[in-house]
Design a protein around this nucleic acid. Structure first.
Length: 709
DNA sequence: CACACCATGACGGGCGTG
DNA sequence: CACGCCCGTCATGGTGTG
């Protein structure tokens, strides 16, 4: 029988820093967690240290929740080994060394050998439901090689077993077969889904709908077989998922709390209760729940999977793959999704979206917990327990990221709420950024001398030429590119036609260009983009910080545009001065041109050891040059790729220095920034997803520091 | 001529605000 | 609803270098 394994959607992601005893290089364990129908993570029920063979990463394997199984496939038939081998395939197309997410395969068996798949071809990765005769859906009768030999029972035995394996109760299956006959599995499944639906409470129905969004559009049809070796690792009976098949499920969840069962399961595999508990805390609790209600897409350009928000991109999800003969299951799901969409739109129109629907909002004014000139709004806050250091951490990114991004970032970073600050309260240029950190917030102090706060003060030579119809007192955000000479030439010619009082439409044209490109007046009718050293000054860097040493002008703009505003960051970090009078050890991720290092130095906080991770050689040169010129007494260690930073190296450095006191990082904003017209893909974008490495490394260091104490 | 490097301009859209 | 804002990217053509 031709059958295909169907990868049924990525359900959950977890990343943890758990060392698997005796297994080298498993610090950066990336987890695979599935959710259950209640939108909760399912506790980890097993560890397969070698499962993914993911370079130096280990792989968790997990069971499948009972309520999920009608949608995702059969927990009873879930084969770890096969799943992990499928993962290998995905890893090969993931392109990145670090893996954030795995696809859980619904175990619809097949007759083809999945190992023959060329995972690097796009065809096999097509996320659209495949058409043609070989395309089967979850609704078709499916028999794996392994089970075929067992199926000697009555004619509907296989059908019953199949649906049993999907987690439906025997009673429901019998009822469905009675209603539909045993030939039409589509109809049976539909009935089963309906029965199950009716049995759920309204709240559960709602969450179930969200859950199912993961499933249809982003499913894969992939060949797979039932490798005999799949059976030789963990037996089904000692895994938790095994006990979840069929009607045992309800009893199972009611007898012991889930986490205790998972603990037992881990303990049975040879880990101490302590280790198991730590693993579970770390992995299960840091799982952001919104991942469960998102669906997955595949970016062909980058060859990577990404999460997409069902709310923002609903139309894509719905209509890009309209095909007449999509399976009944898909039909049901689409109807539900459509229903949900309409509900959501209705709510939105009526303004009924609650706080829960839209949690993190930008404050106005954007002054965070206060600025040097504004009175402190808040001087105390209560941090979530998991966020409390050591180490201190400080994370930065653009404030105006696509919706939901900051919620996700915040959930990963231990539910600390971001502090949004616009640097226009610190200097003459706007820079709206969000900072998530676990630093104290009382007794902050600014760098002295405080930088000029208006354009006139910052660039006094421009004052003479500034027309009264240009009302700007602050510059806009300093970006990575600047206006060209040809542009300012066009503006000059446009102005010269009109003498001293250009008409309103010319004024508007000029002002629009000025705001867009941050132009300043340097002569009569003469505008100019900011010079790189002016940008350095505005951002709080020493003059010539990025100058020379082989860096081009455009690269200077780029590096500066990607940097911190030093005064702003220094104000936040100033509380460290009393805490570390003898200096601190810092791990600086995405260092760029060393904004954090410069800030700490200017605060007078000695830098004992700095491990700086920065991909750009030019930027590393800048920091090294600054390090030497400022006669730093400490050690500067440069690494290039955050993705290659693993537990071994972190443990080594932490051992050398006695741990890290501070972890600073502003991860790439390319895919978040509003000015990106090409690939504003959100947090799962090619560069911005490196945020997860920030979290991964932070979590690893927390883990290491916890052990050292 | 090939090649690397650099400057230039064309290119929307999400989201907040008033 | 109109408006303003935004740590950007890509293809292209020019320039410098061997």
């Amino acid at each position: 029988m031709i059958a295909r394994a169907r990868l049924q959607g990525l359900v959950g992601v977890v990343m943890g820093g758990v060392k698997i005893p005796g297994k080298e290089g498993t610090d950066g364990v990336v987890g695979m967690v599935v959710g259950n129908g209640n939108m909760e993570p399912v506790p980890i029920v097993g560890v397969e240290p070698n499962g993914g063979n993911v370079g130096k990463l280990g792989v968790w394997s997990v069971g499948i929740g009972k309520l999920l199984s009608p949608v995702l496939g059969s927990p009873g038939m879930f084969k770890r080994r096969r799943a992990s081998r499928l993962l290998d395939g995905f890893l090969s197309v993931w392109m990145k060394k670090t893996v954030y997410a795995y696809v859980i395969m619904g175990d619809n068996a097949s007759g083809e050998d999945y190992e023959d798949i060329d995972w690097n071809t796009e065809d096999e990765l097509d996320i659209t439901p495949s058409s043609g005769p070989s395309a089967v859906t979850t609704a078709e009768p499916i028999v794996s090689n392994g089970e075929a030999s067992l199926s000697a029972g009555p004619s509907n035995y296989k059908v019953v077993e199949h649906f049993l394996g999907m987690g439906f109760s025997e009673e429901l299956i019998e009822r469905a077969i009675k209603d539909n006959g045993d030939a039409n599995t589509d109809a049976i499944l539909n009935s089963l889904l309906t029965y199950a639906h009716l049995e759920e409470s309204p709240a559960e129905i709602n969450s179930c709908n969200q859950q199912q969004q993961c499933v249809d559009d982003d499913s894969f049809n992939l060949s797979s077989d039932d490798d005999e070796s799949a059976l030789n690792d963990l037996s089904e009976s000692d895994s938790w998922s095994g006990s979840w098949s069929g009607s045992d499920a309800a009893e199972c969840s009611s007898s012991l709390p889930k986490h205790e069962k998972a603990l037992l399961s881990l303990a049975n595999m040879g880990y101490s209760i302590e280790e198991a508990s730590a693993a579970m805390d770390r992995c299960v609790l840091t799982l952001p729940t919104d991942l469960f209600c998102r669906s997955w897409g595949f970016n062909r350009r980058t060859n990577r999977f990404y999460l997409r928000c069902p709310m923002a991109k609903t139309e894509d999800v719905f209509f890009e793959e309209e095909k007449p003969n999509i399976s009944l299951l898909n039909g049901v799901l689409k109807k539900r999704k459509l229903y949900e969409l309409k509900n959501w739109e209705k709510k939105k129109r009526k303004g009924l979206l609650t706080e829960e629907d839209d949690i993190i909002r930008l404050p106005k004014p954007m002054i965070g917990f206060g600025t040097p000139s504004d009175p402190m709004v808040i001087t105390r806050r209560t941090l979530p327990e998991a966020a409390i250091g050591p180490p201190f951490f400080y994370y930065e990114n653009v404030a105006l990221a696509p919706k939901g991004v900051w919620d996700t970032i915040s959930r990963f970073l231990y539910d600390v709420k971001p502090e949004f600050v616009d640097s226009k309260y610190f200097c003459a240029a706007a820079r709206k950024r969000g900072y998530i950190h676990n630093l104290p917030i009382h007794n902050r102090f600014p760098l002295l001398p405080q930088p000029p706060r208006t354009i006139n003060e910052a660039l006094p030579l421009t004052k003479r030429w500034w027309p009264d119809w240009d009302k700007r007192t602050k510059l806009n955000c300093l970006q990575t590119v600047c206006g060209s000479a040809r542009l300012t030439d066009r503006i000059r010619k446009a102005l010269e036609k009109w003498g001293d009082n250009p008409p309103l439409h010319v004024q508007k044209y000029v002002l629009d260009e000025c705001r867009k490109w941050n132009l300043v007046w340097v002569g009569k009718n003469k505008l100019a983009p900011l010079e790189p050293d002016e940008v350095e000054m505005l951002l709080g860097f020493p003059r010539n910080h990025t100058r020379g040493g082989g860096i081009s002008r455009t690269d200077r703009y780029k590096s500066l545009g990607n940097s911190f505003q030093v005064d702003t960051v220094a104000y936040h970090l100033s509380v460290l001065k009393d805490l570390f009078p003898n200096g601190l050890n810092m791990l600086s991720l995405f260092s760029g041109i060393g904004g954090a290092e410069v800030a700490l130095h200017r605060l007078g906080i000695p830098l004992k050891n700095v491990v700086s991770v920065e991909i750009s050689e030019a930027n590393r040169d800048i920091v090294r040059s600054w390090w030497e010129q400022t006669n730093q007494k400490g050690n500067l260690i440069h690494l290039d790729d955050v993705q290659l930073v693993n537990g071994d190296s972190l443990e080594r450095y932490a051992g050398m220095f006695g741990g890290f006191d501070l972890i600073v990082g502003g991860s790439p904003c390319n895919n978040l920034a509003g000015s990106n017209r090409v690939s504003r893909d959100g947090l799962e974008g090619e560069q911005s997803s490196l945020f997860y490495d920030y979290f991964r490394i932070l979590d690893l260091v927390k883990c290491i520091m916890g052990r050292q104490q």
